[in-house]
Amino acid sequence: MSFLFHIGRYAMFVKQVFGRPVKHRIFFKQIVREMDVLGLSSVGIVVIISFFMGAVITLQTAYNIDLPIIPKYAIGLAARDSIILEFSSTIVSLILAGKVGSHIASEIGTMRVTEQIDVLDVMGINSAGYLVLPKVMALIIMIPFLVIISMGVGIIGGWTAGTTTGVVPSDEFIYGIQYMFIPFYITYSLIKSVVFAFLITTIAGYWGYYSTGGSLEVGRSSTRAVVISSIQILLFNLILTQLLLA
């Protein structure tokens, strides 16, 4: 019952987000600001996590296929495909669901409970669109870059771990990451990440926008935004994998 209620209200909310726009000049200014707040400020954490993720994937792969009949370059190949196909887009999105999702939900939630959203509504501004659309667009623009950075750093992390521990020689790893490379895998990953960016920003915006009460409820909305957008990312990951790769 409450599940259906939220689905319905979320659908109406998304429609409102894409409804009557504000002046273009103001809209573009907002997008640039949000690209900085939501995107650029996440580069650091994406780099750190991707480096270690790539390192661990490479070591895991190496220890699991430690058979003489499998050539060493297969480690590079397997690590590359795991990182590009799955880890970068999913991990980056889950990080952003936590970082960006809670930020958006608490920002908009605070504006709701302090009547700042009412101020916009009284003026006849489409408050959902004014507040959420720039964030949706900004993250959709920024997330492919973050994912590509994550892929690059992940592979560098893998190479670093593989060569320093000696499980795979440098030239074999580099040969492996080039072997049978399918460019569509990158496209596939970027498509997924764009969908995830949409989910994170709209779901977090939704929970913030419909906050009631005081700061306690805003905190609750923010937690809910993170949990639910994370679950949706995992669910849509499954759906998109089936749709795009099957």
Binding site: T110, Q116, D118
Partner: peptide, 18 residues
């Protein structure tokens, strides 16, 4: 929306954009 642009409102908690 036209009528709204003729309204000004002061909220109980000021509601300035932080």
């Amino acid at each position: 929306i036209k009528v709204r642009q003729e309204m000004g409102m002061l909220f109980q908690g000021s509601a300035l954009f932080d």
